[in-house]
């Protein structure tokens, strides 16, 4: 945990500021380190260790070895320091009372990357990041990032929204995503992520949705080579730390984390568009049928009801985000 540990080697005489013991923060990541988010984690880790002169160590446990995002959040919210930090999707906080975080994953909210980053660098962002802390959940967000827009991909060729009608689409089991799929005229289907490849292969489901990078890294193009770039949600990510770990840090150390967060956030912004374009080119070269969506308005219209009911509690705040484009 973030318990203090004696340094591995006794410091040489003369130096050693004894009041700053070494601290290790256990940091959970669901994805492998070579993904966009994994690289963002590493950038954050390296910056923290650089700025602290190695006094704060970030122990990244990647590839989901500590569990899914919900498992990790359950461990963090349970307290005690099993996991101190984690990179999560902002969406994951929805089932922990994250009313504000929820707004970030409302379908067709962000029209482009700029729009999201306008939000992520606005005065509103810190308020959103602190929501779980203010809710009394015992965690706080440090900074935002993104893993690209999420798009639908299907087994059968598609060219327009209407082609999704009647298809069985696998989405996460939360009500907003399910409502969105229904709004598009398809039927949401429950399939565990581990069974998704086989389910696409055999035809239990006709399609699913992921950010482009995940679509490729999970080998889904092999079984569902049709990608429609509807960008229904932007995969907003954030790095969270438990209040327990935060409060153990000195103010200086807290500043280091914030500073490194700012750096990692910018790093993420820089690489995600680049990486996504690269992956998209690769996919096209591999023969994936990539369909551009010229006009997103009909999609927005189709899921209007879901958007309205999901933002009912926070209408003004939601409008503020929409207006940031």
């Amino acid at each position: 945990g973030c318990g203090t540990k004696p340094p591995a080697e006794p410091p040489a005489q003369g130096e050693a500021p004894a009041e700053q013991p070494e601290i290790t923060l256990v940091y959970a990541e669901v994805n492998p380190l070579d993904t966009i988010v994994g690289q963002t984690d590493t950038a954050f880790k390296e910056k923290v260790e650089e700025l602290s002169g190695g006094k704060i160590k970030i122990d990244i446990q990647a590839s989901g070895v500590l569990g899914s995002e919900n498992d990790v959040l359950d461990a963090m919210l349970g307290g005690g320091g099993t996991i101190d930090m984690s990179r999560i999707s902002a969406f994951a906080l929805t089932s922990y009372g994250g009313e504000k975080s929820k707004l970030l994953s409302i379908p067709y909210t962000f029209v482009n990357r700029e729009h999201f980053w306008n939000f992520a660098t606005s005065d509103l962002a810190p308020e959103f990041l602190l929501e779980p802390h203010e809710n009394g959940s015992g965690v706080r967000g440090l900074f935002y990032g993104e893993e690209g827009f999420r798009h639908f991909f299907t087994v059968k060729p598609i060219s327009k929204m209407e082609d999704l009608k009647g298809m069985k689409l696998r989405v996460s089991n939360d009500p907003v995503m399910n409502g969105m799929v229904q709004g598009l005229g398809a039927s949401p289907t429950v399939v565990a992520f581990g069974e998704l490849y086989s389910a696409l292969q055999t035809g239990v489901v006709d399609g699913a949705e992921q950010p482009i990078a995940n679509y490729k890294s999970n080998a889904f193009p092999e079984v569902a080579p049709n990608l429609i770039l509807d960008g229904h949600t932007l995969g907003a990510i954030q790095v969270v730390i438990t209040d327990e770990a935060w409060n153990k840090l000195t103010e200086e150390q807290q500043n280091i984390l914030m500073e490194a967060g700012k750096y990692a956030s910018e790093f993420n912004r820089k690489i995600s568009e680049e990486a996504e374009n690269k992956v998209l080119e690769q996919l096209k070269a591999e023969g994936v049928n990539v369909v551009e969506v010229e006009d997103i308005t009909p999609w927005q219209e189709a899921v209007k009801g879901v958007i309205e009911s999901a933002t009912a509690n926070n209408k003004e705040l939601y409008k503020k985000i929409v207006d940031m484009k």
């Binding site: 945990g1 498992d71 461990a75 349970g78 307290g79 565990a192």
Partner: peptide, 17 residues
């Protein structure tokens, strides 16, 4: 010095597949 609540969490996680 880690919390024993880990037991509760991991038991449920273990079955929840």
């Amino acid at each position: 010095g880690l919390p024993l609540t880990t037991i509760a969490q991991q038991m449920v996680k273990g079955i929840s597949s």
